[in-house]
Design a binder for these strands. Sequence first.
DNA 1: ACATTAATTATGT
DNA 2: ACATAATTAATGT
Length: 238
Amino acid sequence: MGSVLSQKTFPRLDESLLTHMPPFSRLEKNQIRTILDQATSRRYEAGAAIFEEGLPAERFYMLLDGYVRVVRITPTGEQVTALHIPAGQLLGIARALGRDTYPATAISASEAIVLSWPMRLWDSYVADYDGFATETYKTVGHRVGEMNNRIVELATQQVEQRVANALLRLINQTGRKVSDGIEIDFPITRQDLSELTATTLHTVSRLLSGWEKQGLVESKRKRIKVRDPHALVVLAQT
DNA sequence: ACATTAATTATGT
DNA sequence: ACATAATTAATGT
């Protein structure tokens, strides 16, 4: 029975949290219940590290709300953003990649709500729960595809096309439709964009203010809204 | 075609 | 008031 000695101070997690998340969507209610009971929930403020590159991968995570950027640190200390992860996806799934340390650092781009499980449960989840493996490998495949595209971009395209593409990806994956365009719905600085595209924040700043004058884009501090995605697509292909 | 440096201005707590 | 973000110009590779 519910003892006062319980260490869990969190309210009981609701099953509806997971029922619509792809890795769990095919599961029965009671299966989700046991999964939830094994989970720990935590809230991260913007900019907090959820796990760090190179550290032993002790847990895997499910992002319930917010956005996370996956970042790698170069030997010289610069950050390179590999990709952004929207709510509803797993992260820190080193196990699925055959690793026992995290391949990158995960930073919450906005406030984020995260569930996590000890990594030892991974194998039993894969074995026991139908759809868990296939769905997660689907997203893994999608992610490596994205990263491959980015590598090709970095090698072949010029800066203007790169940031145009980066913006397009951001509004596709993490965009929120508003009245006069699509807005990236987490705070993003020019510094962040430059880390995504391997340039400087100055170049990004110039490009953005140029596009703003052409009515292509609108931005306030830490907020970027794309008013004319198609024009960006055109730009990205020239 | 882009980075770097530096100076200036705007914006959020 | 202070720190952080963004712009702008000048100079360098």
